[in-house]
Nucleic acid binder design. Sequence first.
DNA 1: CTTGACCTTCCAGTCGACTGGAAGGTCAAC
DNA 2: GTTGACCTTCCAGTCGACTGGAAGGTCAAG
Lengths: 141, 141
Amino acid sequence: MRIGELAGQTGASPKTIRYYESIGLLPEPARTHAGYRAYTEHDTDRLVFIKTAQRLGLRLDEIREILALRDQGERPCDYVRQTLRRQVNEINQHIADLRRLRDELTALDARADELIDTDTEHGCPLIERAHGAPTTRIDPA
Amino acid sequence: MRIGELAGQTGASPKTIRYYESIGLLPEPARTHAGYRAYTEHDTDRLVFIKTAQRLGLRLDEIREILALRDQGERPCDYVRQTLRRQVNEINQHIADLRRLRDELTALDARADELIDTDTEHGCPLIERAHGAPTTRIDPA
DNA sequence: CTTGACCTTCCAGTCGACTGGAAGGTCAAC
DNA sequence: GTTGACCTTCCAGTCGACTGGAAGGTCAAG
């Protein structure tokens, strides 16, 4: 199958597939007479594996590690489990940070009507009053 | 005061301060005889304002908007409140995604002992079994 | 008079995962 | 025989917020 078909099957773009090849996530495929990449179901499987691992929060370099182990016939489960546990810890930390941040923003907004009538020389009392804020940035998902 | 002192007062690095100037967050300061940047307390205030707004989850371009309004003597509160509410919505969405992700990872890890004894031909059953996963990536904070 | 901390400008790189676009080759259908 | 979809390579750009480093100027202390 050609790259477009593999893309259609997996939801990755042809660009992304070539990119994965370039960084060693996918092996260099056979080529047709015309120089087109020719993929098999093994590639579909591998790409689905990659996408799944990615959805689980693994980074591409981690996935590459796992695939390398897999290609050597090893069981990457220990590595995967370790990574998953690290992920869970990070997620919990992240959630806690976000909760604190959200609660502060909500409280700030709720108090806005009174605050808004105070001295405005420095711009916005909403921000001036927010000094003890949390330290985590959010990324707009 | 020179850039190092401003940096020390605010927790920003001299590099960052120059960067902020270059993108229009901080005004071009006066210079000393030697060409050194000379700051006043207004700059300290402005930089603290920036840092606080940043801790509240605002992006630098949003902060620049707010400061521009402030510089024109307007009350940016409406803008800020709107932004804060958007932030809160995004945070809630984010938390929900992360919770789903965490729960799946935890469940996966808990079932690992049984799964680990199954067919390992494709690498790690932990990943093979995880098809219905959520769609959000996390960023390790 | 030299050392060393501090300052200057400017250019380039980082992280992560792609994406855009140019310039050109291939192939099946009409 | 030509259109148009698809493929190729290669280089560069995106986002966001910086950070690194080179090459050089300034200044107070010892």
